[in-house]
Design a binder for these strands. Structure first.
Lengths: 116, 116
DNA sequence: CAGACACTTAGCCATTGCGCTAAGTATATT
DNA sequence: AATATACTTAGCGCAATGGCTAAGTGTCTG
């Protein structure tokens, strides 16, 4: 589902905070290559599983990933569309630098089209 | 001064965390239109000055802005180059996604096989 | 030179973030 | 049926974040 511009902006706090942690960025990079289970994702990290799960829940709360449990295995998938909010904000900044405030919406639309 | 790619990546934690706060993003947007003093920047916010200054110091620590004091006035300027680290990270993510299409299909096929 | 102005420092407080361990639940596997 | 697997829940501890007030410093301004 496509979020409205305003809704995307309201999520920026959570999204940027999710990206501020190296463990979570590493998880996103791993998931960029395809879905994975919790234990597969956790294996590279020297961290207790409950600690790792907090990162997963944080990512899920930010919308950057989705998870689904089948049997005793929870599988995680990245949600690429959520990154559009970040790109939109960056585009907005660039527009300000260049003295234009009108390019943002156009850019977001383009990114959403790309995601399809 | 130009940062190496690796140094930029080491700064991602701080940069993303700086961007995770709406006050700080608003300050960046304001500075995207040109330099400003602390009091000018603080005026729109319903916040005590020492609280606001913490945001400025955080932004300065992340490298997203630079400040310089002349007389009793501290002037803030945005450092656009610092945004390159964010853009680079996003570009890397997209690269992973694009190399992923075949693996995703593989995964789906595997799941379908398991279901039988 | 007195007072206003623009920060600046110091320190308090509540909440959140991120790690841990111990123990629990639900689902395979043998 | 018993054990192993894959999370899951509960709760602890410490550091960092983001707000505040009170008081201090240095620089104009009248």
């Amino acid at each position: 589902m496509i979020l409205s511009l305003m809704e995307q902006y309201q999520q920026l706090d959570t999204i940027f905070q999710a990206l501020a942690d190296p463990t979570r960025r590493a998880v996103l990079s791993r998931l960029g290559q395809g879905p994975a289970s919790i234990s597969d994702l956790a294996r590279p990290f020297d961290m207790a599983l409950p600690s790792f799960m907090k990162h997963i829940r944080f990512l899920e709360g930010s919308g950057l990933i989705q998870t689904r449990k089948a049997g005793r295995v929870r599988t995680c998938v990245i949600d690429k569309q959520r990154f559009a909010a970040v790109e939109a904000w960056l585009a907005d900044q660039r527009a300000l630098w260049e003295g234009r405030a009108d390019r943002l919406e156009q850019f977001v639309t383009q990114e959403q089209d790309k995601a399809k």
